Amino acid sequence: MARLTREQSQARTKEKLLASAYEVMARYGYAGASIERIAEEAGYSKGAFYSNFANKEDIFLQLLAGNAGGDVVQLTELLGKHDDPMGLIDVLAAWANDRGDDRRWGMLAIELLRMAQHDHTLGDRHVKLFRDQWEGVGKILIDKLNLVLQPPASPFYIGGIVLELTYGGISSFLKDGASGDMVRVVLREMYRSSRAATPAARATA
């Protein structure tokens, strides 16, 4: 077996720490997850942690960034195969159910943002993380469904609606499949409303 290069070893260490952070935070919540516990469960020292991350908030923001970016990439590939609008919406609804079943992402994101707001540390890095994800998903849907938007609707809003229904806290209190059902209802109505748009509205969209 070939010996890992220093860069490969560092990448593997970082990957294991990220995986450990997700499991520890999912188990104990963001506030209850300590750097010591994250490092220990990954099999490393605190020194290894600080060689890769500035603090606990940094590792969690990197976790969220990976999840958010992964959603955009996954949906681009998944929805790119479908041209039938209703079929595409059904595929997206199934994706929302699958993602929404793991409710830890949404709850952890809410907890982090609330703490950042409380501690007055909420900044551009937090906002950009979600803005990029929401706009990316919104652009995919507008393009694939050929939606005609009327202000204040925007890619940011369209993507935000879908992802909030998928990950939002309310889904934690509803029956399984509720996330997908809500996404299906909203997007079907968006599509039908867009198809009913007047020629003038389409010309100015």
Rank of each mutant, 00 (worst) to 15 (best):
Met1Glu: 10
Met1Tyr: 07
Leu4Gly: 01
Leu4Glu: 09
Thr5Gln: 10
Arg6Ser: 14
Glu7Gly: 04
Gln10Lys: 15
Arg12Gly: 01
Thr13Cys: 08
Lys14Arg: 15
Glu15Leu: 13
Glu15Asp: 14
Ala19Arg: 15
Ala21Cys: 13
Val24Phe: 06
Val24Met: 00
Arg27His: 09
Arg27Gly: 03
Gly29Tyr: 01
Gly32Trp: 05
Gly32Leu: 09
Ala33Ile: 08
Ala33Tyr: 06
Ile35Asp: 04
Glu36His: 09
Glu36Ile: 11
Glu36Tyr: 09
Glu36Ala: 14
Ala42Ser: 03
Ala42Glu: 01
Gly43Leu: 03
Lys46Asp: 13
Lys46Ala: 06
Ala48Met: 05
Phe49Met: 05
Asn52Arg: 02
Lys56Arg: 14
Glu57Trp: 07
Glu57Tyr: 01
Ile59Cys: 01
Phe60Cys: 07
Leu63Met: 13
Leu63Pro: 00
Leu63Arg: 05
Leu64Phe: 14
Leu64Arg: 04
Gly66Ala: 05
Gly66Ile: 00
Gly66Leu: 06
Ala68Thr: 10
Gly69Asp: 10
Gly69Ile: 09
Gly70Thr: 09
Asp71Asn: 08
Asp71Thr: 03
Val72Pro: 07
Val73Lys: 11
Gln74Asn: 12
Gln74Leu: 10
Leu75Pro: 05
Leu75Lys: 00
Leu75Phe: 00
Leu78Pro: 02
Leu79Thr: 00
Lys81Glu: 12
His82Arg: 11
Asp84His: 15
Pro85Asn: 11
Ile89Ser: 12
Leu92Met: 10
Ala93Met: 03
Ala94Cys: 03
Ala94Lys: 12
Gly100Asp: 04
Asp101Thr: 10
Asp101His: 12
Asp101Val: 06
Arg104Val: 15
Gly106Asp: 02
Met107Asn: 11
Ile110Val: 15
Glu111Asn: 08
Glu111Ile: 09
Leu113Asn: 13
Met115Gly: 03
Ala116Tyr: 06
Ala116His: 11
Gln117Val: 08
Gln117Lys: 11
Asp119Ile: 02
His120Pro: 02
Asp124His: 13
His126Gln: 06
Lys128Cys: 00
Lys128Gly: 02
Lys128Phe: 06
Asp132Pro: 07
Gln133Leu: 14
Glu135Ile: 15
Glu135Tyr: 03
Val137Asp: 00
Val137Arg: 07
Gly138Tyr: 02
Lys139Val: 09
Lys139Pro: 00
Ile140His: 00
Ile142Trp: 05
Ile142Cys: 06
Leu145Tyr: 07
Leu145Cys: 07
Leu145Ile: 12
Asn146Leu: 07
Leu147Ala: 09
Val148Thr: 15
Leu149Asn: 08
Gln150Met: 14
Ala153Ser: 13
Ala153Cys: 07
Ala153Thr: 08
Ala153Leu: 14
Ser154Val: 03
Pro155His: 01
Pro155Ile: 08
Phe156Met: 12
Gly160Tyr: 04
Gly160Cys: 03
Ile161Leu: 15
Ile161Asn: 06
Leu163Tyr: 09
Leu163Met: 15
Tyr167His: 15
Gly169Asn: 00
Ile170Pro: 02
Ser171Gln: 15
Ser172Cys: 06
Phe173Thr: 15
Lys175Asn: 10
Lys175Phe: 07
Lys175Gln: 13
Gly177Cys: 04
Ala178Phe: 07
Ser179Thr: 09
Gly180Tyr: 08
Gly180Asn: 12
Val183His: 11
Arg184Val: 00
Met190Gln: 12
Met190Thr: 02
Tyr191Ala: 03
Tyr191Ile: 11
Arg192Asp: 08
Arg195Trp: 02
Ala197Gln: 01
Pro199Thr: 07
Arg202Asn: 02
Ala203Gln: 06
Ala203Arg: 05
Thr204Phe: 04
Thr204Lys: 07
